[in-house]
Design a protein around this nucleic acid. Structure first.
Lengths: 234, 234
DNA sequence: CGCCGCTTGTTCACGTGGTCACAAGCGCCC
DNA sequence: GGGCGCTTGTGACCACGTGAACAAGCGGCG
């Protein structure tokens, strides 16, 4: 069968992709204020970037703006959601129900934003069988069965570092092709799997570096840090 | 008073700074295995980068390697810790004791790595006064007093988005010059304050983008994402 | 004591991303 | 219906980061 439509798959830079969710959040804010259209300048304020970058980023999605007027908030919101793949729900499995995993499982913001938690898994028999936020924790050995019951799109690793690689391997074996890793260790995945990582200790250490450079308690300034993001690793 | 020593403050690229904590973690691993020295190639394996990048990054710290041999693990570890400002403890205050803040407060990994939690603050009177991991939650209005009692170096914002900016402002007023923001909103800080942000929803949406591009359930591959990090915003 | 292999540190070329500036184009007003 | 102001979209330039290739240099062996 041929490709669905004449979708030419314009290549969107990684740096731009990382900003799209921020734009989308800003658009939601603007829509909440009842604004029908928004200019690149205003969107830049809301998202924390500059207007030129906003315009260039949006141009990768297509020419959805109107010169002299701005962007139609609702329409741009729709197009951006579509581009980000947010028109469908992505089912998430959380592995590791320690402090962090527990907090993630209880956090309701995922389901609201189109990422419902479909399953929770752990290896500790004392945790397996308990209920968290209405979901029963199952053993990680059941991962294949869980994936067979319902589609699992994204795996979140909230285990200790020592277990992270094996958990990732099992997720991939079960058909998961996007992984978000919170464990403070390197996880290797094949090229067709996306991997992103969040490491709290690393973030603190980066802050520590810049704070020390400023002279410990803040005197001469050196370089201010602002977080960027890259695309997931294949 | 003149500068302490002939510290010439070589400029380390932001991208390199973001990798230093990863190298340091890899060095700890190597030291745990009892290795006296390590080559750039092996360090590249452990840290997930390539050898050329490792060598270039390390060269910014100085010529701490020995040709034909490699890098002395312990010495490099020390130099890197010093550069990252990890020779002293950085005291952390966590604002917002919801799911995430609670998990962060209970997570012991911070203190171990040189970032002891010095205080917890919240605005909710039902939370103020409770004990978490041996620390009593205080009201956010006491932030100035808390900072006066003991040095506070880094502020972690784990509040709802609506409160984030005000919390940040109060932290800065209390003398905090490094902030890690978990709230899904833009926070503005003056140039002399470092800001980094972690947004779980954004991470998931980036994964969603690449997964959709691959064809939903994974067929043709497009681009794999690997997380990068930038320096904190001033 | 000289040679040889190994690994670093650096240089160079390339690609990506960011910034600026400006022409194109749309809507409104007169 | 024509002109004018406003905002987009894009093209060119520049800085940064990456990747490879190579010379410099150290240690060990004969």
């Amino acid at each position: 069968m041929a490709e669905g439509s004449k979708r030419q798959a314009r290549k969107i830079p990684e740096a731009t992709v990382a900003r799209l969710p921020i734009y989308l959040r800003s658009l939601l804010e603007a829509a909440g204020d009842g604004l029908p259209t928004i200019s690149s300048e205003r969107l830049a304020e809301l998202s924390g970037f500059n207007a030129a970058k906003v315009r260039k980023d949006l141009s990768y999605l297509g020419s959805y703006g109107t010169r002299g007027v701005g962007y139609d908030v609702e329409y741009l919101q729709y197009q951006m959601s579509r581009e980000l793949g947010l028109t469908k729900d992505w089912h998430v499995v959380i592995a590791g129900l320690g402090n962090l995993g527990h907090a993630l499982a209880n956090y309701g913001g995922f389901g609201d934003r189109g990422f419902p938690v479909a399953a929770l898994v752990d290896a500790d028999p004392r945790v397996v069988g308990t209920d968290i936020n209405g979901i029963t924790v199952r053993h990680i050995d059941e991962l294949d069965a869980i994936a067979a019951e319902s589609q699992i799109d994204i795996g979140i690793i909230a285990t200790p570092a020592s277990a992270a690689q094996e958990v990732a391997d099992r997720m991939i074996a079960a058909g998961v092709s996007s992984i978000l890793n919170f464990a403070p260790t390197i996880v290797s995945v094949p090229a067709e799997v996306s991997l992103r990582k969040v490491d709290l200790a690393v973030e603190l250490q980066i802050l520590s570096f810049y704070q020390q450079r400023r002279g410990g308690a803040g005197s001469t300034s050196s370089l201010p840090p602002e977080t960027a993001a890259a695309p997931p690793a294949g």
